[in-house]
């Protein structure tokens, strides 16, 4: 885990380019999939918050999964869903306190942010760099 996904709502304009980028980066049957990131009105003037999976350390989705379909990728640090193992009990969708495990009705499957396997497409397309994928500085790194 040498990189981290940084969200900076202060410069987010709510243009929803990330939503489009995410949907096109996760297609199914040649159709855009469900986006895993949503810029939502933060409740103040000119304030948008891109809400996406925070890849929590003690994640409620991982704890709630009774079949161990959700596992952390040791390389990217993202919690990834093994769709072959998912039994669609919706426990993770209900358990996530940030609402970032989602049901994609189009493909009848649970989806969540997987950091695009280590190269988040949304960060590439964000025009104001409110989303970025940056190396973790040595001094910021948590021991262990």
């Amino acid at each position: 885990m040498n990189f981290r996904f940084v969200v900076n709502p202060e410069v987010c304009t709510g243009c929803r380019t990330c939503e489009l980028a995410c949907a096109f980066a996760h297609p199914h049957d040649s159709k855009p999939g469900k986006s895993r990131i949503y810029p939502i009105d933060g409740g103040f003037k000119e304030l948008w918050v891109p809400v996406t999976c925070l890849q929590c350390d003690d994640a409620a989705c991982v704890k709630s999964c009774l079949v161990d379909a959700l596992k952390r990728n040791p390389v990217t640090g993202a919690i990834e869903l093994n769709r072959e193992m998912c039994v669609m009990c919706m426990a993770c969708v209900a358990a996530c306190p940030f609402g970032c495990a989602l049901l994609d009705p189009g493909q009848d499957a649970v989806v969540k942010c997987d950091l695009c396997g280590g190269d988040p497409v949304c960060a590439h397309f964000c025009p104001t760099k409110a989303l970025s994928y940056v190396p973790i500085k040595k001094k910021d790194r948590i021991a262990g």
Partner: peptide, 17 residues
């Protein structure tokens, strides 16, 4: 999950504001 996301945005919004 929809309301959880809205809540997250509101909480983060308060911090940023």
């Amino acid at each position: 999950d929809d309301c959880h996301r809205k809540e997250t945005a509101k909480t983060m919004g308060r911090v940023v504001n």
